[in-house]
C-alpha cells in the first residue's frame, strides 16, 4: 500500500507546501538562534557556522521536497501507463505531483538569499 490511496492523497497534496512552510519557519528560527548565540562569528572553513547550517537546512529541504515530487510524479506516470483504471482519479495524482513540484521550486527560490544577504544585520 502506498500513500497514493484515499483519503491520504489529500495529505500528499498538502505535504509539499507543508514542508515548504516548515522549511521557512526552520530557516527563520535557525537564523534567529544563530544571531543570538553568535554562530555568525564561528568559522567553518570558508563559511560561518550560521551560513553553513542555513545552507544545509535549505538544501536538505529542497532535496526532501524534490524526492516527494519525484515519487508523486512516478505515481502519475504509473497511472497513465497502466491502461487499467487508476485506484484514484488521475486528477488527484496530477494535483499531488504538481503541488509537490511547485513546492520544491518555491523552497529553492526562497533560500537563494542565503547565498548573499548579510545574516545578522
Amino acid at each position: 500500500m502506498t500513500l497514493a490511496t484515499r483519503p491520504a492523497i489529500l495529505l500528499v497534496i498538502a505535504l509539499g507546501y507543508t514542508l515548504w512552510g516548515g522549511a521557512l519557519v526552520a530557516l527563520y528560527g535557525v537564523l534567529s538562534l544563530g544571531c543570538v548565540f553568535g554562530w555568525e562569528e564561528v568559522m567553518l572553513g570558508p563559511l560561518t557556522l550560521q551560513r553553513g547550517l542555513l545552507l544545509l537546512l535549505w538544501l536538505l529541504s529542497v532535496l526532501v521536497i524534490a524526492l516527494l515530487a519525484w515519487q508523486t510524479w512516478g505515481w502519475l506516470q504509473a497511472a497513465r501507463a497502466d491502461g487499467q483504471p487508476p485506484p484514484l482519479p488521475r486528477f488527484t495524482l496530477w494535483l499531488a505531483a504538481a503541488c509537490s513540484i511547485a513546492a520544491a521550486g518555491a523552497t529553492l527560490f526562497m533560500g537563494l538569499p542565503i547565498l548573499g544577504a548579510s545574516a545578522c544585520i
Binding site: Y17, G21, L24, Y28, I121
Partner: peptide, 29 residues
C-alpha cells in the same frame, strides 16, 4: 492551493521596518 499556502510565508513583510536581519527579510521578500 499554492496561494493558500504561500500566503502564510509573507507575514513578516508587514514588519520589514521593525529591525529584522537582512537574510530573514530576504526569505519573506
Amino acid at each position: 492551493i499554492s496561494v493558500g499556502f504561500l500566503s502564510f510565508g509573507l507575514w513578516v513583510h508587514h514588519m520589514y521596518a521593525v529591525g529584522i536581519p537582512h537574510l530573514a527579510l530576504g526569505f519573506f521578500s
